[in-house]
Nucleic acid binder design. Sequence first.
DNA 1: TATGAATGAGCGTTCATTCAT
DNA 2: TATGAATGAACGCTCATTCAT
Lengths: 209, 209, 209, 209
Amino acid sequence: MRSDSGSVGQEGLSFIAEARREQIKKAAIDTIVELGYAKASLAQIAKRAGISKGVISYHFAGKDELMEKLVVEFYVAGAHFMLPHLEAETTARGVLLRYIEKNISYIGENRHAIVAISDILLNFRDADGSLHFGHDGRNELVEAVAQILREGQEKGEFGDFDPVVMGSSIRASIDMVSAALHADPDADTAHYARELTALFDRATRKDPS
Amino acid sequence: MRSDSGSVGQEGLSFIAEARREQIKKAAIDTIVELGYAKASLAQIAKRAGISKGVISYHFAGKDELMEKLVVEFYVAGAHFMLPHLEAETTARGVLLRYIEKNISYIGENRHAIVAISDILLNFRDADGSLHFGHDGRNELVEAVAQILREGQEKGEFGDFDPVVMGSSIRASIDMVSAALHADPDADTAHYARELTALFDRATRKDPS
Amino acid sequence: MRSDSGSVGQEGLSFIAEARREQIKKAAIDTIVELGYAKASLAQIAKRAGISKGVISYHFAGKDELMEKLVVEFYVAGAHFMLPHLEAETTARGVLLRYIEKNISYIGENRHAIVAISDILLNFRDADGSLHFGHDGRNELVEAVAQILREGQEKGEFGDFDPVVMGSSIRASIDMVSAALHADPDADTAHYARELTALFDRATRKDPS
Amino acid sequence: MRSDSGSVGQEGLSFIAEARREQIKKAAIDTIVELGYAKASLAQIAKRAGISKGVISYHFAGKDELMEKLVVEFYVAGAHFMLPHLEAETTARGVLLRYIEKNISYIGENRHAIVAISDILLNFRDADGSLHFGHDGRNELVEAVAQILREGQEKGEFGDFDPVVMGSSIRASIDMVSAALHADPDADTAHYARELTALFDRATRKDPS
DNA sequence: TATGAATGAGCGTTCATTCAT
DNA sequence: TATGAATGAACGCTCATTCAT
């Protein structure tokens, strides 16, 4: 059912309920973009969705579940978008450059939502105060890049460097594009993609000794 | 000590008051590190300082002033730390690599505070909802790096790239070290410094064509 | 009842909400009568209403709105009560004496609320420190009386005096009845009405020269 | 020393202490005039006096004592001012008209302080919520006027009216002049004195039947 | 005497959550 | 399903008062 449709909806929910959930998620993103995570209260989200506060509690176990869903679905959709492009590449260098390029494309095409997602990532904390999307999630993303780099080093395509540090730098630079879009929503993402692919192509290249 | 040093303490305050202010600022940083900015209430800060809530209001005009002080004093101290090293360099490349290295040193030596400072930067908002330390502050830092890069390009030390994108990538990579320290407080910052200077040395180098 | 009457209730609110608002307004008046404006906190009002503090914030935008509503609705209702009686009079003297009499009647019938209303008038201040119901409101009431007096002077019904000073004295004397009721809730308002109409009938009469 | 000087200061206090007390009282009046009773905190009063908050607590048992002193001393001084003029009159009518005239004079000469005094009278409450200067004080003033009126009625100088109601009206009208001064600090008090003496002369006169 | 420092209670307000309808 | 109503805790802040120095 779900698995072949690409849908991120939940099993066993009526269309009406599913539509409501989507409406609420959209309103939540709009609210966070506008007011920031800290002031994005359920009341504000409900107001923007044109519904009553209680509805949100009805459809989601709580504010936390709503936030979690927003982030996870954003990343799942991102993976769906990027994977085909990466699988078409044959070299590690090709995969890396395409990864950077398409990741920035995805950010550019979701420049509205990305602002909210970043805000949630940095602020959503569990009851004990620890970041809900802490280092595990972050490490996972870095590790995916590091793996590409390691493979390239083994194949002799890349030079000598710490793949984890390089991977972290790449991720940080990609995420920086989100921040740049926040500052200037009309920024040219293709320009960032060109510059960053060139930057990290040089940075990962074998020394021309 | 205070009066003749580069200390950021305020003139005209008694030693007792100054000590209390320092104690409160330290407690504020500890609290933010532990609970995050959003949950770092005056009550929590006071609890960690072992004082009553009202004391904070007595020594600071309000929570906002306290937060502002934390950030500004951190950056002022950072500039004090870095400037002498940069002025000792004669080439743009030297300045850039030293900038990266010493910035990471400063982060490493303040690995505790940096977590709180980052959190404040990303979350402290004015009454109108806009980030108090918004893009102006961020751009200022990027622009300082971009200026180094531009000079190097003019002198023929660096290759061809957009200095603003490169500068943003450098800043993002340096800030990434803070995040890495948050995940692993015992991380080897010198290793990060070596890897990142090498990375951006390659990335900014003239094409060997 | 509500919908077709001159009621001051708001349209578009459910009966439950309207009932709660009335209950809160009543509790607010009771609280102010008992403790005075300065100590009439939302907590005290809620306590007397037997509800939680938050309910007041739910039904009113804030304490200020609640206070404003109390005063405005009291005056609107007062005007509704008095106007028909004044319109039935044909002479300025008749209007004046009826104004005094019926105003005191209204006070007598609302002897409880009037205490709170007076307290609000004298103490409710805006954020800038100025009285919310300042001299403009007061002058309006005085001016209404002064206008009656001026007309009577023009028609030759009254003697020679400054209508603003006389009007102020009349208003002050009427308001004094409120204070008297505060001291002795069982005071005979009809007696005050008789004495004050006679007093100002003599005071405004043409000299019998 | 003190007892024959007419001073209202306290026995056994050094000149320094007495001067401090006067300074604090003056600052208190200024503060209440400017901010209103409710916002006239000890901190504000101390600020205007150029001293520390604790000094007030040192010289006065508490805020309440300070407020009490301000009011009582104002009335004592008022009696000092008025008595000689009243004792010079030989008829009840003369005493009444002089009372009104000189009372308004006193208000006019203390138009600054009177604003604060009125504010205290209306807002200073005891711990149980009751007005500290409640009906007893008010009644005392009214009763003084009523006594003049009764004597005049017994001597046949005045007509037939309830002396308490008439006395209340007179007091209310005099106090109204304070309010008028609050609205317009440059108001012509002599004009008010002329109009109100004439008004109550007519109102108390024997019917010319 | 006078001070600056500290306290602790109370303020108005916001908010995630619960629940009867 | 959806709603409006209510809760109760926490928030930043103010203040009269206390007290060691």
